[in-house]
Amino acid sequence: MKDYKGEQILVVTRDLLNSLGSFQGINTQVEDYLPSLLNPENNFFMDRGAAEEDPSHKQLIPYCIFRVKQDETTRYLHYTRGKSGGESRLHASGSVGIGGHINPVDQRNDALGKETYMAGVEREIDEELNLTGDHSNRIIALLNDDSNSVGEVHLGVVHLIDLESDQVRANEDAIANLGLLTLEELRGELYERLETWSQLCVDVLDSVD
């Protein structure tokens, strides 16, 4: 087991997901899930080392997709996961998602509710990217992929971040070859090199306003 130095992360039980309606792939019916997933009675912090080996729990992972609309062209942030990233099973994969775990440092007045969750999302964005200008943030989908060892212990919460400016820089070595690409480019030769979650998102992004 990898040493995560006692890191505590926000999780829900797989039983909760099953009770709400388990699914495979991407699900845009977020309101059927979010109130329960972000209810403080249904989530809690768990040792990451244990959670990574325990498919009976799902780690809640914000997966933020960054979009820029300029001159009638829509582009999305894309990067390659570097070796210094926390998830070794995804190294060298292409990705359109930025995010990470929700930790106790994010806890707000609502205990483990939506305020805490959103604080964690914004912290992750600030840690991983340097953005110019304002941005919006809305949840558009959930991701579940039980077909591999990474996916079976994670539940992705897809955020669409609309950027005011295309001036974006990486704050971490784990984010390499950062750039902005159109959906057509992402669905071309790059597609097969994208991690599974990114492929699922790229498949549906043109249906999101």
Rank of each mutant, 00 (worst) to 15 (best):
I61P: 03
R187G: 14
V204E: 10
Q8D: 08
I61K: 08
E195R: 05
L163W: 06
I102C: 06
E31A: 12
E185H: 06
D32C: 10
C201W: 13
I102Q: 02
L90C: 12
R123S: 12
R169V: 14
T182Q: 03
C201F: 13
S56A: 09
S84V: 13
N171W: 09
E184M: 11
T80V: 13
H78D: 13
N103W: 10
R108W: 04
E195A: 02
I98P: 04
Q70H: 01
S36H: 15
R108N: 12
Q107K: 08
Q107A: 08
L20S: 08
K114F: 07
N27H: 05
T74G: 04
R187P: 05
I26N: 03
D203N: 14
S19N: 13
D206Q: 15
M118Q: 11
F66Y: 13
L183F: 02
R48F: 04
D126F: 11
I26R: 01
A119C: 12
R48Y: 11
Y79M: 10
S198F: 04
D162R: 05
F23M: 09
V202N: 05
A176H: 07
G151D: 10
D15P: 02
G94I: 03
H78G: 07
S95M: 12
K2E: 15
E115T: 09
Q199A: 05
N43L: 00
H159P: 01
S19D: 13
D106H: 10
A50V: 14
T13M: 00
L194D: 10
G99K: 04
P55G: 00
E41K: 11
N109H: 13
V121C: 07
P62S: 07
L20Q: 04
G6P: 15
Y191K: 12
T73R: 07
S84Y: 14
S36L: 13
G151F: 04
R108C: 14
E41H: 04
Q8P: 04
N148E: 12
V208C: 14
G188T: 13
E195T: 01
L183G: 02
I140N: 01
F45R: 00
L143T: 05
G94N: 01
C64P: 01
E128C: 11
Y4V: 03
E122R: 12
Y63H: 09
N43K: 01
L34H: 04
E128K: 09
V96C: 10
H57G: 00
H135K: 11
R169Y: 13
F23W: 08
G100Y: 05
T132V: 05
D162H: 10
L10Q: 13
G86L: 14
Q8K: 13
L112M: 09
